[in-house]
Nucleic acid binder design. Structure first.
Lengths: 121, 121
DNA sequence: TGTCTATATTGACAGACATCAATGTATTTG
DNA sequence: CAAATACATTGATGTCTGTCAATATAGACA
């Protein structure tokens, strides 16, 4: 069974709220350990060269989608390794998986990437 | 001697250029392994709960600056561990270090965080 | 049904990393 | 100079993780 887990949405707690200039007096509350751990899990999913390349490969493919075989050919890694990375990205909500016959097609979730990006600022 | 290394600036190669809608035909080139590794190093520096909390703590401090002792008190970790994390963040360009007498003060580099954030999108 | 193809899972292993205790270094202060 | 304080470095340890070979699963097709 393919991993379809949607990650729980992080509390709306970026490192600072966009409206505030850096260090307005009495600024934002420091991030809790729990929120920091959640965000770290998200960032770790993306902070890997192979996974960044996979994202980039899918993005530059037609329709922003690719199947595992294409990705395995393009990267210099074994098929199980590619499968592993795709699972990590899918669990993090960065990719979506769709089964078409024997093939598994993966597409980008741009919203998720933007969300991660936003939480950083 | 404190680590003052400025990381080399990543090539201007976000996962996709902002002007392009996702998957315009003949879109962006896939990211090279080398660029992916550089970006991964950057992201890994931030993808840690303790370091995210440190960033958040500094951001919510007066003047966006804090010394090691304050940070050590606020986090539940040993002083060498805090020192280690601060070094990682400084090496990644996310923090700047300034010596004032016995104290070492760390400040944020918001531009660097924005750069990381931009490369993700 | 049986074979082939595409993908997932398992198990193992090596390298990376977060953490701490102990120690070193440098600055301030008495 | 001596003691105390603030921070960095070293060395050790346990955990996490990226990778692959081997195997399992499942759909397509003859």
């Amino acid at each position: 069974m393919p991993t379809k887990t949607r990650p729980r949405v992080l509390a709306d707690l970026p490192l600072a709220t966009p409206t505030q200039a850096c260090c307005a007096p009495g600024a934002s509350e420091p991030m809790s350990r729990e929120n920091a751990e959640d965000l770290a899990v998200l960032l770790k999913a993306v902070a890997d060269p192979a996974r960044l390349q996979l994202i980039s490969l899918i993005r530059s493919s037609a329709n922003c989608e690719a199947c595992v075989c294409d990705l395995t050919d393009a990267m210099g890694l074994s098929q199980p390794t590619i499968s592993h990375h795709l699972r990590v990205l899918t669990s993090a909500g960065v990719l979506s998986r769709e089964q078409r016959g024997t093939w598994a097609w993966f597409t980008l979730n741009p919203k998720r990437l933007k969300e991660i990006s936003r939480l950083l600022i």
